[in-house]
Design a protein around this nucleic acid. Structure first.
Lengths: 355, 355
DNA sequence: ATTAGTTATGCAATCGATTACACGCGGCCG
DNA sequence: CGGCCGCGTGTAATCGATTGCATAACTAAT
């Protein structure tokens, strides 16, 4: 029956106090007397009052909202991080705005708008490829906007960062293949420009070097983190006469595409080739064969990034120096990797002294 | 160097006009003279002004934001719908707040808060299991909050709805198995309480009935839309002596878990059993075997739901009667279904007259 | 008893943008 | 020539909540 949403005025009138008192009763109860507090709660109950966030935001210049910008919500890797972020934010009373970051200036402008227009109090960036100048412009103002970068490092940017040990994890994944006796090891790359791709490639190269294996450039297959690109890589693999006996794929999706491509031509994993992936997607344990992969602590990553961001939002001086948290990934051994077989389908090779 | 974010006041001062004029120049350019418009744009450029959304929201009582509430962001089905929603919203200048709907009152209260506190102008609900009373309370006020329900129907609720033809699609999926000669057909169920599960079961039952097949209760396996539940269902399947030759799974994830469980015991699809899934997940074409499945028009669904919601937000009378859009799903035939073989691993059966 | 300190409350300004209303000016019509 | 209309602009109220300052009522200390 109410004509319109009740405001703090209505509550004040009902409780016979001023709006100032109502505001205090609700936000800092210790400042009002017990009796008043009770009358106010009662009035709130009766009127059905709910805070108008716009009014509060205007006055306090804070929106109780964080902005999460990511390259692709559909990617299960990001969506599970987003999930963790949302949970943490919810627990601390913050809303979560999501922004798909395709390419292009249009999106960047929107990102800027959200922040500058006071719709969000801070930015959680899950993409390392955003223009650094722009970010610094946002973060460097007098009224600096808190930014935390997660997942992907922006080198030398000085932003607070939460990420996983990509280089090290990639090295361990590759080492796993070496431990199984493989000497002819290839890599299915991630996208060219991507920081994470590069880090994983670095780790891959280090592992080879540490074991004195010489990298074969043709065995680094172009990829794009998606299944299609893995599938195409398989075609290139099949066209080679000298093939690797094992592949470290930049992520599970491309690994799956790759395996699917190979299987169409009768190359069976792990009989003919070993493949290790990255991410431990939900499907990994149920794929055929179940995928050996590096599991990143996605929930922890999302949670910690959100925690850090909100800490800074609430107290800009909370963190002295730029934060840098590196989480360790874990190798999950399943059935897509196996000890190298003598005389497999692939030319197991003359340069294979051991095993 | 600026002390603080520039406001409309600063722009007005710089352009030598009143704030009213600046506001008009920006929101309804046709109302100011050409010269003034130019001076204002210049002033905006120089001062680096951006709108403070809180101020505008307060005055206009609209947040230019919609709230999307869903049961699980991590689920790739939902995340791709969310993606489509975000794109559409972005195109129309709206922000997207996401809210994970676990169970429990806590979350519902948050949902209510978001809407009542004017942080969002409308609700896009991707979950049919929310308390209808609560929703009606929100939608039925004098200052009604626009609500669109998508994906899952809330029967007799009278809300605007955008969904896919679950019953019909399930019927067609099952019919596909029948067309391949299968007569002993089982179903891997979705969660008990879920509307979508029930609809798919209904479609399944109808297809059987239409072909005069009698349903076997034991062949309806409990499931939960996730891989684990499919995996467990496989164990129950294996323990039976009389087994179905084909299964219609409520979704791809459970189908994959099911296949993975069977494979561990040497039951190979499609040689020994045919399986049709639902959703056409990204992995479906690359699974082993590639999955036959019903593809729902996810992008269209998200886009149309967002469109409808924003239409109503911008003009509450835009839609006369409750909207109801039903989108058609499409059968994608791959390799997990095959014509029934004589004398397969399963007791192909005495009650199998044809083929 | 006077003063200082404490507590609870109210008054009114404030946050930034929008908009109803009023005003001045020029042109057009009768 | 006078009145009317409409365009472009300014003035000031308004949206709803918070908060600095003032004040009143008490308590405690000297």
């Amino acid at each position: 029956m109410e004509r319109k949403t009740p405001t703090i005025q209505d509550v004040a009138r009902f409780a016979n106090v001023s709006t100032a008192t109502v505001s205090r009763a609700l936000s800092s109860p210790e400042k009002v007397s017990e009796g008043t507090r009770a009358r106010v709660s009662e009035a709130v109950r009766v009127t059905g009052y709910t805070l108008n966030q716009a009014g509060r935001s205007l006055r306090q210049r804070s929106a109780k909202t964080i902005l999460v910008a990511l390259p692709d919500i559909r990617n299960p890797f990001f969506s599970s991080i987003l999930d963790a972020i949302e949970r943490e934010a919810a627990a601390r009373g913050y809303g979560v705005l999501v922004l798909n970051l395709y390419f292009g200036h249009e999106t960047i402008r929107r990102l800027q708008d959200f922040l500058l227009s006071n719709r969000a109090d801070g930015l959680l960036l899950l993409d390392g490829s955003v223009d650094t100048n722009l970010l610094h412009a946002l973060a460097g103002q007098a009224d600096a906007i808190p930014i935390v970068v997660a997942c992907e490092e922006i080198p030398n940017s000085g932003f607070h960062t939460v990420l996983t040990d990509n280089v090290d994890a990639a090295e361990r994944a590759t080492q796993h293949l070496i431990d199984l006796g493989h000497r002819r090891i290839g890599h299915l790359l991630g996208p060219d420009h991507n920081v994470v791709s590069r880090e994983r490639f670095t780790g891959f190269s280090r592992a080879l070097a540490a074991s004195g294996l010489t990298p074969v450039p043709e065995w680094s297959f172009r990829g794009n983190f998606d299944m299609e690109s893995g599938f195409s890589a398989a075609a290139r693999f099949l066209s080679m006469t000298e093939r690797p006996t094992a592949i470290f794929a930049a992520n599970d999706e491309s690994a799956i595409g790759f395996l699917s491509g190979l299987r169409q031509h009768g190359i069976i994993c792990p009989r003919d080739i070993s493949v290790v992936g990255f991410d431990d997607l939900g499907v990994a344990p149920h794929y055929v064969p179940p995928l050996t992969t590096m599991r990143q602590p996605r929930e922890a990553l999302g949670r910690m990034a959100a925690e850090a961001l909100i800490d800074i939002v609430e107290d800009p001086d909370a963190l002295g120096i730029p934060l840098r948290i590196v989480l360790r990934s874990e190798l999950v051994v399943r059935e897509s990797t196996a000890r190298i077989a003598r005389g497999g389908t692939n030319k197991a090779g003359t340069d294979n002294p051991s095993s």
